[in-house]
Write a protein that binds this DNA or RNA. Sequence first.
DNA 1: CGTTTTTGACCTGCGC
DNA 2: GCGCAGGTCAAAAACG
Length: 307
Amino acid sequence: MSEGKSNPYNIFDPFNDSFSPFRTSNDGNYPFFHNNHPQQQHLLEATQDHSSAPLNSTFRAFLDGSMDYNTLSRAFDMSCCSSSEVISTDDSRKGASILSKNNNQSTPKNSSSALSSSSEEMATVGSEDKDKGKIIQDEQSTGCHEDQGREEKSKNGDKSKKKEKRPRQPRFAFLTKSEIDNLEDGYRWRKYGQKAVKNSAFPRSYYRCTSQGCMVKKRVERSFQDPSIVVTTYEGQHNHHSPATLRASNFAGMLMPPNLRSTCLMEPPYFQQELLAQLLQMENNRPDDPMSKLYQNLDPGLQFRLP
DNA sequence: CGTTTTTGACCTGCGC
DNA sequence: GCGCAGGTCAAAAACG
């Protein structure tokens, strides 16, 4: 997200039953928190030249198990164009929001993405208050190369060496209401950089997965507009299991409502499935009064309050 | 002592 | 071409 760059997403306004474009920027101005008014948290949906139907069917396939996680990722890339964004609330369990970026490109890719939000993260995030997390599948990823390594890079020498232009991996961003910046997601990360973000009082931190050969990166920043919101952007796909899967599952299992515990005992992607399932349910319920349904469905037991 | 974080410098892409 | 901003590197410091 570079400043001034237009990110012509479409968001669905349940009140007007229409889509409208909006922009996101690194100032943390995300539409769903627009004006900080719950009634103005727009329900985001797959839109534009792609109706929501194909995407939803993709979701369904994913949810009923006939499609695996990576396939889903690819499906997103292709069905939502090369620059798609999927946002779901962590209310996600309740409030569905999917949005896709307007983009003319529709280059098929073999890329996949990492939804590395674990149940542990969900639980941690909710430690303060009812958390609000969102997932954004991001980026104008035009392809996927495993060649993400920059080993060839040398600071001073080899400037003549022309570097292969590396297409960016698809990204997923989680927006989470938390006072903790670096949310536990079950994977181990090494911080490799921090930068001040223009128009934001909060720096952006860059992390890389410490697992050997795993090129997944994540960025963590705080929304300037709503400092209580942490934006965690994942890029790439883990080529290994979460080292903390068991720990995370156990932890989440203690906090999760019974109806979700079984889900939490699964690998994070499957937990994600459960979230998506509820997300999808919400989407199906939308017709009459989407927002009322959205909030009605907010089961207090799903808010991961800590004692 | 190995690992992680900090931080200034460097690289790269993009808009003007 | 220049300047700006995002992203990354890597040495030093901090940490466990």
